[in-house]
Each structure stands twice: as C-alpha cells, then as structure tokens.
Design a protein around this nucleic acid. Structure first.
Lengths: 354, 354
DNA sequence: CCCGGTTGTGAGAGCGCTCTCACGAGCGGT
DNA sequence: ACCGCTCGTGAGAGCGCTCTCACAACCGGG
C-alpha cells in the first residue's frame, strides 16, 4: 500500500444506502412553489421569474436533487441516447481499426450532442430479439448499425417498430428504404486498380472482402470496372475471396499464388487483408512493392507503420462516423430535408507498396 | 450500384411512422385478461395458467407489442444497464489496448448478464456534472470507472448519490470506502525488476507511469522494493517519469540516457511506454536486449509482435474486465458477502528483450 | 359439510415526471 | 372605469408499467 490514505470524503451528502432519491415534489415543497414551476426551472424553460428560478435552484442544490430520467423518458418519449451496434464477434470488432474508428467518432459526436452511446456487439443471432426489444422499448432513440451481413432484416424490423436506424455501408437489400452513410467503395476500387494497371503491372489480382457485404461487392466492382476500362479481360482466376481480416487475406493470397504464380499486383479490399497479403507474399519469397505491388483499403493507422508502409485507399473513417451520427440525430429530431444516402469520397494514398 | 435490389420487406407490421406504440393495456384487452395478468405472462412470472399464457403471448405477437422500458424502469428502479466510463481523451482511450481490452471484456460480461453497456469517454471536466446527472438519474444501475486520476472525487460522488461504482485500479484517495479491481502492480514491478537484477544488469532504471495514478505509483514501488531487496541503493537518477504512452516513454528514455548513459536495463511501467523506450534506445544506437534489457507491463497483443518480441509483465486484462463487471452486477443485485478489493495476480513473460 | 390452504386473477394505487389548461395579477389603451 | 393583453403560476391529468392486496375458485382432510 503505497498510496496516501484518503482525506475525509468531501461530499457525503447522502450517506445512507437506499435512502429514496429526492423527487421534484420535495424540491418544489422546499422552494415553496408547485411541481410545474420547479420542473420549468430545472429544464431551463423561459417562463419563470427570476425569484422562482433562484429559490428552486437553491432547493435542488440543498437536497442534491437529480431528476429521474426514466420518468422524464416515459413522458417525453425521448431517452437522449442512441445505440451503436456492431454485428460482428467481439474478436473482430476489437481487432479492426475501422470499427474502432467508427466507435470513436460516433462516441464523440454523440457526446457533443449531449447524448449517450449504448454500445453493443452482437455475435449470436438470438441476441437480435433481445436487442430489438431493447431498442424498441425506448431505451434508445435510434440505432447506428455497423457491419450488416447478407439479407439481415434487422434494420427493416427496427424501422417498422419506429426506431430510426442509420447504417454504415449500403445494405445488400432494402437499400431504397433504408438510411445509410458509405464511402465510395466502387470509386476506391477503381482508383487502386487503375493505378496498379497504369504503373505497368501485367497481372493485377484482387483479394476481396466478404461478398455478402456491399462493401466487399462494391470494391470488387470497382476493380472490375478499372480492368475493363483498361481494355483487359476480367479474369476470375485473379479474384480471390477474403473477408476483410488479415487471416482471410493471407489464406486468399496463398490460394491465389498457388493458381497464378505470375501475379505481380494485388488490390486488397481492406488494410487488414493487405497485411495478410504482404505476409503471404513474403512467405512465398516475393518482395513486396518490387515483385508484387499491393494496395489496401481503409488507411487504418497501422498502414503507415508497416514495413514497408502500405499504399492504400483512404476512407474518411472519422467523417463517416460523424456523418452517420449526425444523420441519425437529425432524423430523431425530425429535421426535414434529409437524404437517405450519403456517399463520402475516398482518396488514393501512395506509400511504398505500390 | 452492384447490389441486388431488395425483396419485398418481410415484416412491415407497423408501417406508419409515429403511430403510437401498442401498450400492455391493448395486449390485455385483446387477450381478454387484466393488465396484471398480461404483465405476469410477459415477465415470465410463475403464477399464471397455461391458457392465459398462450392467449397473452398470441395477442402480444399479433400487435408486435414491445414493453416500454422507461415505464418499467420507473417502477422497478432498475434500468438493466451499466455505464463504462473512461476518464481519458478519446485519443488515448482508443490508442491503448488496455482500455480496449477492458471495454471488450466488460461488454461481453454485461451482454452475458443480459444487460446493456453505456459507453462514455470523458475528456473535459465539465462533462463530469453531466455524467453525474445521467448516472444518478437512473438510466444506468451502476458505473464501471477506468483511469481515475489524482484525487478526483467522482466515485465518491457517485456512491453518495446511490450509484454503485467499481473502479479499475486502486484509487489514490478514498481507497477504504471504494470498490475496485486491480492487478498486482507492486508484485509485477518487483518481478520485472528482480529479473533484470538477477540477470546481472548493473544499472537497472525504470520509466514510470503517471504518478497521479496508483498503477504508476505501485509499479514504481515494486521496482524500488526489488532494488532494495537486492541490497542496492534506490537511486532517483535511475527513475524517469513517463505517462503510460509511447511518446511519454520515448521522452523519458531520452532524458534518462542523457543523464545516465550507463543504463543497461529498463523496466517500463506499460507496454506502450516500452515501445517508446525501445525506439529511443535504437535512436541512440543501442541494441535492445543486448546493450539494454527492457521489460514492459500489460502484455498487450502488440507486445508479442514487436521486433524483437517484448518481455513484459502479463496483466490478466480480460479477467480484470470480467471481474469488475461481475462485482458491479453483484453489488447492484445486492448479493451479500462481496469484498471491496480484488487483486489479480500478474506473471512475467520473458521474450527477447530481457 | 365445513374449513384452512392453495392458486390464479383483477382492481387500483402508485413510480416521478412533463404538459396542457385555466386562472389571477399586472399592464396600458380607450 | 372598462377591456384585452401578456406573463407567471398551479392544479391535475396522464405517460405505461409493476406490485400489493383482496377475492373467487377450487383442493383435500377432518
């Protein structure tokens, strides 16, 4: 025990455990006004006299009054908090800087708006019902949903229960009715592939993301578009399916190299995948950048720290998180004139691998 | 637009926006029972006939009834959710694998208990009042508090408002009354330092953590204890103050090397700091492991991936997060026989830097 | 046939707050 | 003196749920 011992507790106002919390009623009584007036003061309502304001504030202070949020939520229908839901395993969520970046910017944006973030990661499908009950139960005013796979109907179900939902990434299904914020995945895929093509690479392959996600599909579509725009045939043998993870990128590359040892450039659909690609390339004795050029996608912080530094398509992660949060908050407030889809531009960051 | 277009929305039960959500009253009416009975069924209460159960469940299903959580919270006084609060900047929170690991295990433990996690990171002190109002307002049943600095009275204030709080790390003040879960920091510091001493190092220095945190103080205390146990004088010139970050560790090492170029071993109070130490050592032309041995603290995942792999004191991060969450949940439930402090053991992991 | 005991159910009283509405006080213009 | 204002205030009705309590229905044992 090296720490100094505690000074006397400064503010043991309500020492007794389980003493019932003071209510607005008590504040009002103490201040000699009605509950209504006390409420008005505490909420910062305009129509109160200066005298009432002072006396109520003093009374509230004296008894350490804190308004009961459940009661307030019950009547107003607003909880002043939103959910941040990632449909991945904890493992993946915490290993992926993209999710972490989104969580960070969402948390910042929500806090700036004076609200709270309820953070949930859902691995098992049976959790979905529980989450649905939670969200529709009014403990959050809306949902930020990340990593939607396949034809999952969760966003539709949330919306139909009256819970505003904003997705990160265009959904595979229901895109017309749902709200989402996304990066220009097709454009990014094109950008990266075109660069590889233009720098004289003969066999430009791609390690894709999961194809049950739009981001995976779109980046592949961008790759294809660039290949065809260059007047080359789209060769399925140069497409190896990964899953956005390093392990997936590694495995996909091993398979690819096995079939097509002549590959001299790889566009990986995520930085994490690119890390796996680089490792597999090295293990096969190829030099990264020289023998085989590599471009990733995302521009996670670790990309710049790699040896050699990874060239990549920079996704505006913070802007994406902020935009989705703002959009959700605006929807909750009922702001008019909002658009369902927001696409943010990406840019090519050339470092040493391409 | 490469994605397939949406199939018809499967379950557009409640299409109209802002249609008032169905209430228990409606379920009861539809089922031909009282609100009380409907409530019993929906909560899974024992005392209901099979017939009542069926009919209520069917009615609820038909109208997509979801219980209003605010109303439930108002009467039960339980929100079934806890807050996870980190008193750091977003920058630090998201750069530190320790916090991320704690968040992950807390989220897992909370989800396992069927509850929700409200995630907050507080940079500015003025946020404290807002958080206090939020927590004491009953939107969470308790608080998990990380990275308490100095004599911050937040935990005391939370407790005095009736909000059970569990800290990660022993608080500098108020330790007798507060609840916390911690790793054996003193023991870990001793372990690392003794190993350095025993392997024949002549000038064993330490790069500390912030000394306004118990973890920083305790690891330093462990260092000192080991030095003195070895019969050597405690030399303040070998102590350089850092702050648990890589930048801090780097700066502290530069200062240290400047004063004491003869140093041949460094115990860094965190892995992040150790990364900074290693970089500074390299920049000074020294070889890590040979010229200067280094041991970190935490065993974050990146430690094993370093070149060379970092020796470190392994802190059971997941166990720490789980333990703190369980403790909080048990306190909320009012389980008897709980102890205020839990200290988890650490272990020395020798890799290549020492 | 009556009685204490169980069992399922419903009536009704809140939980602590917000919000609508009506009202009295104070004002200046006719 | 009257009217029509605005302005601050209080009474009271809920928000949707849980929980206590009383009660009716039914049980088997004396």
């Amino acid at each position: 025990m090296t720490c100094h011992t505690a000074p006397v507790n400064t503010a043991a106002r309500r020492p007794a455990r389980n003493r019932p919390a003071p209510t607005l009623e008590e504040v009002a009584a103490r201040a000699g006004v009605s509950r209504a007036t006390a409420s008005r003061v505490l909420r910062g309502d305009q129509k109160v006299s200066e005298r009432a304001r002072e006396v109520v504030l003093a009374a509230a202070q004296e008894i350490s009054y804190v308004p009961n949020l459940a009661a307030r939520t019950l009547v107003t229908g607003r909880s002043e908090s939103v959910a941040f839901l990632v449909e991945e395993s904890e493992e993946r969520m915490f290993a992926d800087p993209f999710f972490l970046g989104m969580l960070r910017s969402a948390q910042e944006a929500v806090a700036t708006a004076g609200q709270q973030l309820v953070f949930t990661v859902m691995n098992r499908p049976e959790d979905q019902e529980r989450f649905l009950a939670y969200a529709a139960g009014g403990h959050v005013d809306g949902v930020l949903l990340l990593s939607l796979h396949g034809r999952d109907q969760l966003p539709q179900r949330l919306e139909s229960l009256g819970v505003p939902t904003v997705l990160s990434g265009r959904p595979l299904s229901g895109g017309r009715r749902l709200w989402y914020v996304d990066a220009d995945n097709v454009g990014g895929g094109e950008l990266a592939t075109r660069h590889l093509l233009d720098s004289g690479r003969a066999h430009v392959a791609t390690v894709t993301g999961p194809l049950d996600m739009c981001a995976g599909q779109d980046r592949l579509a961008g790759y294809r578009a660039a290949v065809e725009a260059a007047g080359r045939p789209y060769d399925e043998g140069l497409v190896s399916v990964g899953d956005f993870t390093a392990a997936g990128g590694h495995a996909a590359t091993v398979r690819l190299l096995d079939e097509r040892p002549d590959v001299d450039a790889i566009f990986a659909a995520s930085d994490l995948a690119a890390f796996g690609v680089v490792r597999a390339l090295r293990e096969s004795g190829r030099s990264v950048g020289d023998d085989v050029a590599v471009i990733g996608f995302d521009d996670v912080p670790a990309a710049a720290d790699q040896q050699p530094p990874l060239s990549t398509v920079k996704q505006p992660i913070a802007a994406l998180g902020t935009a989705m949060t703002r959009l959700l908050l605006d929807r909750i407030e009922g702001r008019p004139g909002l658009t369902r889809r927001t696409i943010l531009p990406v840019e090519l960051v050339l470092r040493e691998t391409a």
